[in-house]
Design a protein around this nucleic acid. Structure first.
Lengths: 354, 354
DNA sequence: CTCCGGGATTGAAAGGTTTCACAAAAGTGG
DNA sequence: CCACTTTTGTGAAACCTTTCAATCCCGGAG
């Protein structure tokens, strides 16, 4: 036994070019047991006597054995990894969502791989293709276009898909989202409570559904206070970047005093930060001359020169729940697709408190 | 032939529960060709006549064939994916680095999977283990501890490793990093040129190597201007967060006027933003009462109330180069490990210009 | 002493793809 | 119409692991 063991060890150590990585077979030979036994050590250690197990483990260490996941997966039919295809890897919102997913994945002893589509449909499609070929256990995605038919196809072919932070048109998948109407409502209600009656809405509500909903919530809050839709002053932007916020700020500052809003509800914290920047350079005081409220509560909202009031989405829970839905789908025998909607909350800071 | 073809098609379409995903074998049967031919269509389309190729492609579409990457990889020995184990997924610096890697990966038709160790050694080790088992083509990593011996082992076992934004002690891997001494030097030289002679250094240089180097560069710049090390006022922090910056700002404001620095060099943009926040709340004018310079030039540096002068690291190039080194290692027959060092550049904005 | 039960171990088959040596068909030139 | 080259297609082996029915061995019951 021992002789055999050492012999193989020597063979692998021979000076002539490293032959190839050791497999389960080499381990079996080195330990003087059968192939199946090694596999048992790996997968059902309790079925193996302590003595042999020790022998096998020693051989594995000696040969620097690394399990081959491809072969494993080929046999098992599915892998131990989840993937999140995120819309924008450089947006802290999505990385926080991903962190929540990681928590859930770790709890189930799975890996989470992150892919960044960077708003590009082609890259998104490429990643989806690869993930399906990898036979990942499931795909989490915040799609560029929420009605992507490809998602339905993938789900139909057997890879569960969960849509994150978007509400898909059809009900082929589970999804998690946040109630944007409610978010808009609490934001503007807060401004009204602070005594504001002319409120700017800054964002691209004509093109993005979620922004439209936030604006809808704003209108509802106004209505609830007996204020008509004319109390909402639209400053429409093309996107939701800091630069858009700066631009909107200049337009706002240019309005004549009687028309100029005393508060601004921004569709996004980035826009709010841009607005804040304009205020600083134009010597407008926040919140005295203009109260500002953002949306998302990104980390830098609290770090702004004037800490920003914002609407916080439960990002981490969003991610965790999405991953849990995905796991449920692979586990439950008769799975019903669920659409989970989270409720955002208001975080009040200096930018709206006078 | 045709009969056979149709027969198999029917079997797969039977109403009884979806049996299993179609494989290359099913496609072959459906198209009435051999297994090897289907494989040729997939891998060497030019070796196959247009007519048969069309037949096979039709069959693939019909059966919704999805290539099984595990099997492929098992045979091929290695996969078509790179992975980046990043230190902190919520730090924009690393996501930008990752974007650079994606560019390189895409150019070589590979996928990049992102893993987030979130500063946790255990999670880092778990990911590394999984990646090695997956036989990824190579691993890019910004390790929690740059001297991680595990990395050497992995490289020795055959998976190339490139260390990103850290200089590893040994030379078992390629690495890419940025010249922090130079970064500190240009930052402080700029402040001196603006007429400052008492400069605060804010950061945790006692514990983090990179910060130590930035401070060293600062001292060199002072020396070059004939100013002794006493012109650098250390305000040591525990970490490099916004809160640390706020705290340092309060300490700085508390200094008596003759000792108080007129400029601050922050080890980090986050710290600089925190400092800026304190200045805003204490009504200290930037840059008139205090000039501020940060480090990293994160997106929010330009978006701050007073746009922040900062030292920009070529993040995207850093990532791209790292990925290219990795690919070179898998390609070149006799690979020499290279240590690439990038040079940072100064981005001047309002926070230092009076 | 035999037989039985049960834990430990074995060996072969299966999983889907790629590769490669080989066979068949088609095309070329004499 | 033959010999020969080129193009196209074939089928078996290999990649590494897991699973499972079958075998082995041992102690205890009869």
């Amino acid at each position: 036994m021992l002789r055999f063991n050492e012999g193989v060890g020597l063979v692998l150590k021979e000076p002539g070019a490293e032959p190839r990585a050791a497999g389960i077979k080499d381990v079996a030979a080195a330990a003087g047991v059968s192939l199946g036994t090694v596999s048992n050590v790996l997968n059902r250690p309790d079925r193996v006597s302590p003595a042999t197990r020790a022998k096998v483990e020693a051989a594995m260490a000696e040969l620097r054995f690394v399990r081959n996941e491809s072969a494993r997966q080929l046999r098992a039919g599915r892998s131990r990894v989840l993937a999140y295809v995120m819309l924008d890897g450089s947006n802290p919102f999505f990385t926080d969502v991903a962190a929540g997913m990681e928590d859930a994945a770790e709890a189930s002893d799975l890996s989470l791989f992150l892919c960044n589509s960077a708003h590009r449909p082609a890259r998104e499609a490429a990643y989806l293709g690869r993930l399906e070929q990898q036979r990942v256990q499931g795909i989490l995605i915040t799609p560029v276009d929420p009605d992507l038919p490809l998602l339905g196809e993938i789900a139909r072919r057997g890879t569960p898909v969960v849509v994150v932070d978007r509400t898909p048109g059809d009900t082929t998948h589970c999804s998690v989202a946040v109630d944007d109407v409610h978010g808009g409502e609490i934001a503007v209600r807060h401004l009204i409570e602070q005594g504001h009656e002319r409120i700017a809405f800054i964002g691209n509500h004509t093109s993005v559904g979620q922004v439209r909903e936030r604006r809808l919530g704003a209108l509802r809050a106004l209505a609830a206070a007996g204020l008509g839709p004319d109390h909402l002053v639209d400053l429409t932007t093309t996107a939701l970047t800091v630069a858009d916020g700066r631009g909107a700020g200049e337009r706002l500052a240019g309005l004549p005093a009687p028309v100029r809003p005393t508060a601004a509800f921004c569709a996004n914290d980035l826009v709010a930060l841009g607005l804040l920047q304009t205020c600083a350079s134009l010597r407008m005081r926040v919140p005295d001359d203009l109260a500002i409220i953002g949306y998302d509560d990104i980390e830098f909202a609290a770090a702004a020169a004037v800490p920003l009031t914002s609407v916080r989405q439960p990002r981490r829970s969003l991610g965790r729940t999405a991953a849990e839905l995905l796991l449920a789908e692979t586990t439950e025998p008769d799975h019903e697709h669920r659409q989970v909607v989270f409720t955002p909350e208001l975080v009040v800071r200096a930018s709206t408190l006078r």
